[in-house]
Amino acid sequence: MHNTGNPDDHDHIYFFLDNKVFNYYNHTLADGYPKEIQEDFPGVPTHLDAAVECPIGECITDSVLFFKGNDVHVYDITTKTVKTKTWSHLPVCTSATRWLEHYYCFHGHNFTRFNPVSGEVSSGYPKDARRYFMTCPNFGHGGDYKIRKCSEAKIDAITSDDAGKSYIFAGPIYMRLDTHRDGLHAFPITRAWKEVTNGVDAVFYYTNKIYLIKGDQVYIYNTAAHYTLIEGYPKTLKEELGIEGHVDAAFVCPNEHTVHVIQGEKMRAVDLTATPRAVTQVLPMSLIGIDAALCSAEGIKVFKGSQYYNYESPRTLALSRIAPVPQNITKAMIGCEE
């Protein structure tokens, strides 16, 4: 359990065996366990095949999906009620997991991605788990991403959201890092943002939305709804931000309402609260050839080729006549080879 509103459940692991449930925290069995499944999860049957947590926003309420044969028992964590659905089109799951807001049913050595509310199966499934979820001899990763040397790395765009998730774009792929515990994972950009092809020029996050800039187009996606493109988009840079021309990088600092857009030798500040949006400040850039930029509580990282520079603020980035000592992109940052 990770997303439940009850702190007593957070980071607890539940095992189901026959008619019993075991509750572990920090590898220690909680007091009073094992229990009958009905004691903790009334209405849920015994001898289950699989179970997976589904937080509100992805399911209608904070829930757990329990699988038994073709039946799915949706347990509401708050009300402790159960609704049973039959998904005969979905293979019988021997295990299930939630990963990066997607849901996977494992059956044999295959897996199938499904919608946790409707049970709808995504196109292209089932797939072989040995190509994706584990390292097996003679089985490669199912994506097109190839690990490169760090000295050859180049980031096209980078941003992070309010939850601390980082998104790194390089060519036709993006890499997402939720936590260092979960690790860095690479996917085709079109998997999350199907309308954007052949890479992006810049990206920034603002008020639960992610802005992707490609050429003279701005695509805005609602991050709370599996990256749904907002109606009416894409729009031109002129329409959305009041600027024209190629964008090298863009960033918004935490708790601020200004996007800083780097275009060659200029950095333009655009007030995101204004209607229509317009440039409020233009500063000259001493560092040119920038590929990407990220602003956090620790300052600004500016990426250029396989190196990056640390600056304290947007103003020091623009006005510093002497660049900081460059640092190399590391394996921990984007999963490249040393």
Rank of each mutant, 00 (worst) to 15 (best):
F114W: 09
I288P: 00
L212N: 14
V121E: 09
A269C: 03
T207V: 15
K209Y: 05
T273S: 14
E265P: 06
S151H: 10
S320W: 10
Y211W: 11
H107A: 15
G57M: 03
Y103T: 07
D18H: 07
Y167T: 03
D178G: 02
R321Q: 15
F169G: 04
I173H: 10
E152F: 04
A186R: 03
I329N: 02
T330P: 01
I288E: 01
M175H: 01
M285P: 05
Y104S: 06
E152I: 02
V92F: 05
Y24G: 01
I189S: 02
A186E: 02
N222F: 00
V325I: 09
D271E: 12
I37K: 03
G183T: 01
T84C: 11
V325A: 04
W193E: 11
V64G: 01
V203S: 14
V121Y: 07
E256M: 10
D71H: 12
D76E: 00
Y145F: 15
S95H: 01
Q38E: 12
H89V: 13
D71C: 13
D161R: 08
D156C: 08
Y75T: 06
V302P: 04
Y25W: 00
R176H: 08
R191K: 08
A318S: 08
L237A: 05
E120P: 01
L287T: 06
S313W: 02
I334R: 12
Y24A: 01
L229S: 04
A30H: 03
L317A: 09
T159S: 12
G142Y: 10
T228W: 00
H89A: 13
L287Q: 10
T280A: 13
C105Y: 04
P91S: 08
V74K: 09
A202S: 05
T78K: 07
F67A: 03
P42R: 02
N138L: 12
M1G: 13
Y311M: 14
D144S: 15
K154L: 11
K331N: 13
T273P: 10
C136E: 10
K304Y: 00
A192I: 03
H102N: 14
D40V: 12
S95Y: 04
Y233H: 09
I230D: 01
E338L: 15
T28M: 09
H2I: 04
H12F: 12
N6T: 10
N198C: 04
L272Y: 09
H107Y: 14
M333P: 04
T273A: 11
R98E: 14
F41Q: 00
V203R: 05
T46F: 06
M333T: 03
P116T: 13
E256A: 00
Y227S: 12
V121S: 07
N70G: 06
A323S: 08
V117P: 02
T94V: 14
K127C: 12
E338P: 15
V21D: 07
N310S: 14
L283T: 10
K266V: 04
K20W: 08
I213C: 04
V92K: 13
C336V: 09
V279L: 14
T81E: 14
D71Q: 15
H10S: 09
Y311K: 10
H47T: 02
T330H: 11
D162L: 02
A250M: 11
E239R: 03
G264C: 05
E337C: 11
S118Y: 06
I77Y: 00
N208R: 13
T179R: 07
P7T: 07
K68R: 14
H109L: 13
Y132F: 15
P116Y: 09
G140S: 11
V92R: 01
D31C: 12
R277G: 08
D291W: 12
P55Q: 14
I147K: 09
